[in-house]
């Protein structure tokens, strides 16, 4: 079907659904943000004090706190829907919908996924706004409009990359009775190796050069570099192509699993 107008409907419907559960949304938002600030502030203040330095590996205290404010939300943008968003449909038989209605499963899921991402994207700038209003001292770094625009573009692609990876772990549910831990582990690996827990600048050099053969640095480390304006345009272009490569790579694996899995799907009940 060429007409994709239905995806707009799905997108709007999903946004409405998210707003319906707004209490959960704000608790999650405020809770996580406050925790990130407190933990990163005290931890890194102590580290900076013990080293007696004002800057470490290109990070001032100011900048690293901003980093730790942004990164959890970037992860959330990329991780759109919760673990279980696809596997649950396989387990309880809701997947039938996608097999019965003349619509594409991936298109549908990507649309709902991006609806969630949109919301987190709004959160991201809310937090950044609050930071710049009250906490920013302006010495160590600044954001330019062009960088934030490129950042937005890069984040959208990386969200698609992550969606494809997410779909692989979720589709394992065709065979496994529970994929929750697989989802949790994947998330942890992406966060850790992507630089969400500790910036990659603090990783040993050999590890970083190895990591560049994996998709992980392109998911979190790379967009942050773009945001800080620490990367040349030619490198942005190159990295974007690498991200697209990984997206296609994961899509192919996901599609193979989907094609095999649909033979095992029982639609619940005999």
């Amino acid at each position: 079907m060429n007409n994709n107008k239905w995806t707009q409907h799905v997108y709007a419907m999903e946004l409405r659904k998210i707003i319906t559960y707004r209490a959960d949304f704000w608790v999650n938002f405020i809770g996580q943000t406050i925790f990130s600030i407190i933990i990163s502030y005290y931890l890194w203040q102590a580290i900076f004090a013990s080293q007696g330095a004002t800057s470490m590996k290109g990070f001032s205290l100011d900048k690293i706190i901003f980093y730790y404010l942004m990164v959890p939300i970037i992860s959330r943008i990329q991780q759109g829907e919760m673990i279980g968003s696809i596997s649950r449909e396989i387990y309880d038989g809701s997947l039938n919908k996608f097999l019965l209605y003349p619509m594409n499963f991936y298109k549908y899921k990507i649309t709902t996924y991006f609806a969630h991402s949109t919301f987190y994207y709004v959160q991201l700038w809310l937090i950044a706004f609050v930071y710049f209003l009250f906490f920013h001292r302006g010495e160590s770094f600044n954001l330019s409009i062009s960088n934030t625009l490129i950042f937005t573009f890069v984040i959208s692609i990386s969200t698609l990359t992550y969606f494809m990876l997410h779909s692989i772990t979720e589709l394992i549910a065709f065979w496994a009775d529970n994929i929750w831990s697989l989802g949790v582990i994947t998330r942890f690996i992406v966060r850790f190796l992507g630089g969400a827990l500790i910036p990659l600048a603090f990783f040993p050099e050999w590890a970083v050069s190895l990591l560049y053969y994996t998709p992980f640095p392109y998911l979190i480390h790379f967009p942050m570099k773009v945001l800080f304006g620490e990367i040349e345009y030619s490198m942005i272009l190159q990295n974007t192509f690498i991200l697209i490569f990984w997206t296609i790579f994961f899509y192919i694996i996901s599609k193979v699993i989907w094609n095999k899995g649909k033979y095992s799907y029982t639609g619940v009940g005999i």
Binding site: N3, W6, Q8, M13, Y101, P102
Partner: peptide
């Protein structure tokens, strides 16, 4: 809302 979505899906 579901019907309206089906309207688009089935065109």
């Amino acid at each position: 809302d579901g019907f309206l979505l089906l309207k688009e899906i089935y065109q």
